[in-house]
Write a protein that binds this DNA or RNA. Structure first.
Lengths: 120, 120
DNA sequence: TGAGTGTACTAAGAGTGCTAATACACTTGT
DNA sequence: ACAAGTGTATTAGCACTCTTAGTACACTCA
């Protein structure tokens, strides 16, 4: 369920974080659903519990999960998270347009490319 | 001409690299124009020559400058660099669209936002 | 020849990031 | 009260990056 690639340049905790963010955003993990315990997931992935703990701390800080001490970690609903995430994507799009403009690339040019891409 | 921010999270050599890339891409440094020598710029910015050397090595590796031993470093013309840079921006745009699609965000939605932005 | 240029190498120090090991505190069901 | 399962905190080690420093070498040009 959570693939770990030791050859990946990104640290393990970040891979775990990203994976859960996507699973939650896409609604595969539903609102208030319990995610694996720190120790369980650590055993399953054969890595240290602290690494999972760090991933979970990051997820909580970013608002993707909430923690109940002694009980476990639970997912926040996708419907609560999506608006902010969409805004984040638009923000990055804005930044990209800004960089494009710096070298004289028009937004019309970018738009025409986007319209042509059939599937990604 | 080359601002260095020690509070910036990015390393010095990277700040120098980015700065020159932009100056060259925008044509502020023209084709075959000599850029400051490693030692001169190091004195001017009060940093170690090795750090500048690293920045210049990166610029050469990425094709933004070329080196003539014993003479100095010279800028490549913007017209030579722009096509690849535009392609790079389109690549990043593609990646962004892919991530947007993962959460059910359509390209039409993104395009409508882009069209609305007057200036950046 | 001398001044200025790029290049290469080694070394050291400081800082940071990642992971591991261990111990502590909480909740729940028995 | 206890045991099992949970999250949390602290410390430490290891590796890596960045920067600086020093030294040496090769090239160009006036």
């Amino acid at each position: 369920m959570i693939p770990i690639d030791l050859m990946d340049a990104r640290p393990i905790y970040e891979q775990v974080t990203e994976r859960f963010k996507l699973l939650i955003l896409r609604g595969i993990i539903k609102a208030d659903e319990k995610i694996p315990s720190v120790r369980n997931l650590a055993v399953e992935l054969s890595i240290n519990p602290n690494t999972i703990q760090r991933a979970y701390a990051e997820l909580e800080k970013q608002g993707y999960i909430y923690t109940v001490k002694g009980k476990g970690n639970f997912a926040v609903g996708a419907e609560k998270l999506l608006p902010a995430y969409r805004e984040e994507i638009l923000q990055r799009l804005r930044e990209l347009c800004k960089q494009a403009e710096e070298i004289g690339m028009t937004r019309e040019e970018m738009i025409s490319h986007m319209a042509e891409w059939r599937s990604l």
